[in-house]
């Protein structure tokens, strides 16, 4: 039984546009997009937070490592500048602790503490054929 013709010539039929339904669909679409967008942004932020977390942990570990290395280096400096080390090093280059009689006490003008040419009182001036000093600090 054939109820419909094989060909319908209804291309000329104009459907009624329901604007209210269209609006609702648009609202739903916008809401859906907003929701999806929110999820995408949230996911992006989550992954960024995770990435920053890993980076932060790397930096934290690096900071701890560097602080330990710094402390190790401070320790090495302390060992290298220990009086025994300096004494050994001084003797290796042919120096020895000065005796009191070897030391000319030159009072330097307080106004020019950085002067390289200390004023040596004539009465205490001694032969200065060789001068050397080793800073212990």
């Amino acid at each position: 039984m054939r109820r419909f013709p094989q060909q319908n010539f209804n291309h000329g039929v104009r459907r009624e546009h329901d604007t209210r339904a269209l609006k609702r669909q648009l609202v739903m679409l916008v809401c859906g997009l907003a929701l999806a967008g929110g999820f995408v942004v949230a996911a992006g932020q989550h992954f960024a937070a995770v990435r920053y977390g890993y980076d932060g942990e790397k930096l934290r570990a690096e900071r701890v490592r560097l602080m330990r290395e710094q402390q190790q280096l401070i320790l090495q400096i302390n060992a290298a500048t220990a009086p025994a080390s300096l004494d050994r090093a001084a003797r290796e280059i042919g120096m020895q602790p000065a005796r009191p009689s070897q030391i000319n006490r030159a009072r330097v003008n307080a106004a020019t503490p950085d002067s390289d040419a200390p004023t040596v009182p004539a009465a205490t001036t001694r032969a200065k054929s060789s001068r050397a000093r080793s800073m212990a600090h």
Binding site: Q102, A110, P118, A132
Partner: peptide
């Protein structure tokens, strides 16, 4: 070192 000829060194004092 007391048996050696001793070179002199100058120690800044006062500053």
């Amino acid at each position: 070192s007391a048996q050696a000829l001793l070179p002199q060194v100058v120690e800044q004092q006062g500053a």
